[in-house]
């Protein structure tokens, strides 16, 4: 940032709100962090939609107060279900060109999302996946690395795409790509299912490096090794 842009033109320096991109956030019991995530996003994007998946801790109100459009599931259905609802809502909005899937727990960086969006626009990619393994900013720890790399292997095996990361919640989708998604996996297996369905669209795709912020908070909520067995089972069983 050079001197000219600092003091005088604080508002003008903001590169204008993005009205054609919808941020979609599945929300479940993240009351302590969701407001921060939403208000930061609203600094760049006009449209932030949270699907509250039956939270019991006031997350929906927190997101609403922060300025997000909040949709509410009547009961807890799972992250995949919430994501699908959010996508269905967003693609139906007039003027929606891109959708960015974002996690509610504050582990993603907006700068990464902006960079991915720029790539999607410049390189005419319909799908840009975020990957924490393309640079060395993220250090997931050895156990999590093993779990994730196994998930990557399974995903690549079943989807035919060659990704370097799996279960990364940060993705940029064109409205066209997003409208072809129909997630059936209500729980965590949707992260593989979404790659599978996007792969089948044959639309141009890319992968961009992102940093995943492992706070103590997100670590405490992370996927356990045992839960990956559940994911595998959900994927194998029809």
């Amino acid at each position: 940032m050079d001197a000219m842009h600092t003091e005088s033109s604080c508002e003008a320096a903001a590169p204008g709100l993005d009205y054609s991109t919808w941020i979609v956030i599945p929300l479940y019991n993240e009351a302590s962090v969701i407001a921060g995530v939403v208000s930061e996003l609203l600094g760049q994007f006009a449209n932030v939609v949270c699907v509250d998946d039956g939270s019991t801790d006031g997350s929906a109100q927190a997101a609403l107060d922060a300025g997000a459009r909040v949709l509410t599931h009547p009961l807890n259905l799972g992250q995949g279900a919430a994501l699908q609802t959010a996508i269905s809502y967003a693609v139906a909005q007039p003027g929606c060109e891109h959708i960015i899937t974002f996690d509610a727990d504050g582990q993603h960086r907006i700068i990464d999302a902006l960079h991915m969006l720029e790539r999607a626009r410049e390189e005419k990619l319909d799908i840009v996946f975020g990957s924490r393994f393309l640079d060395d900013r993220t250090n997931p720890g050895i156990l999590k690395r093993i779990v994730l790399k196994t998930a990557v292997g399974v995903t690549n095996l079943t989807t035919g795409l060659k990704l370097t990361d799996a279960h990364n919640g940060l993705r940029v989708l064109s409205a066209e790509a997003a409208s072809r998604i129909n997630l059936q996996q209500d729980r965590m297996a949707h992260a593989t299912e979404i790659v599978l369905q996007l792969g089948r669209t044959r639309l141009p795709w890319g992968e961009s490096p992102v940093e995943v912020l492992y706070t103590d908070y997100s670590k405490a909520k992370g996927q356990s090794l045992l839960n990956s067995i559940n994911i595998l089972f959900d994927l194998v069983v029809n």
């Binding site: 699907v51 949709l71 009547p74 209500d186």
Partner: peptide, 17 residues
Amino acid sequence: LSRANTQLARKLTLAEA
């Protein structure tokens, strides 16, 4: 059944929105 339940809940949520 749970898939049907999800679809029902989604329709409700989207209709409300």
